[in-house]
């Protein structure tokens, strides 16, 4: 008798089990990528030659973190939740009137303009790392808030979103070339000047 059917069918009932095993194996051995963080640039080990730059005290916003995680900002104790607001007020002050996009108080005893405003961060050796990250985050956040405000005014979109798109290598190069001058311009409006001096010993 000739065979009507071809080869006998392979039972695929256990396929699901095999796939589940593979799935569980991958779930156990892999981690979801969580790599994001605060980018910083360290100063070079040898300071540049011309160190005779005089910076006015009013252009420096001092932030000190002590070993218990308390903040001393401009010689006054400050709650960490208000740090961002204070930093924005300092950067956005525009005391000498040369900054036409600043919306601050124009207080003569605070920073002259965003170009000159420097934030100086000092910490104790016993300060907790998590506190330090919180402070760093709030200071970077202050810059980002101001840059977002200017980017919204000039281009109608957020700076952080533009920057992320600009830095992403998957963005088409035409779009990146378009974004480059915009990102640079906003960065120049509020240059990030965050100095970390020597850690105090006690």
């Amino acid at each position: 008798m000739p065979r009507r059917k071809g080869a006998p069918e392979v039972n695929a009932g256990s396929m699901a089990d095999i796939a589940f095993l593979l799935l569980i194996f991958f779930l156990v051995t892999t981690t979801i990528e969580t790599d994001a963080g605060l980018d910083r640039m360290l100063p070079p080990a040898e300071p540049p030659e011309d160190v005779d730059v005089v910076i006015k005290q009013k252009n420096i916003f001092t932030v000190n973190i002590n070993r218990n995680g308390q903040l001393l900002v401009e010689e006054e104790i400050l709650d960490i939740k208000n740090l961002r607001k204070e930093a924005i007020a300092f950067l956005d002050n525009g005391g000498d009137g040369s900054c036409n996009y600043c919306k601050g108080r124009k207080d003569a005893s605070s920073s002259d303009n965003p170009e000159k405003a420097i934030i100086s961060l000092k910490n104790d050796r016993e300060t907790k790392y998590s506190t330090y990250i919180t402070v760093q985050n709030e200071l970077v956040g202050a810059y980002n808030d101001l840059r977002n405000r200017e980017a919204q005014r000039l281009y109608g979109r957020d700076f952080t979103e533009m920057e992320a798109k600009y830095l992403n290598p998957e963005t088409p190069s035409a779009e990146r070339d378009d974004l480059k001058p915009k990102v640079k311009r906003i960065q120049e409006l509020f240059p990030q000047k965050l100095s970390e001096a020597e850690t105090s010993v006690n």
Binding site: T34, L38, D39, A45, I80, S130, I133, T134
Partner: peptide
């Protein structure tokens, strides 16, 4: 000292005040 100046403090995205 070894001139590796670009650093990143790697973190998890979340509310910073939870750190405290």
């Amino acid at each position: 000292k070894v001139n590796l100046l670009k650093i990143n403090y790697t973190t998890v995205e979340g509310n910073v005040f939870k750190n405290m």
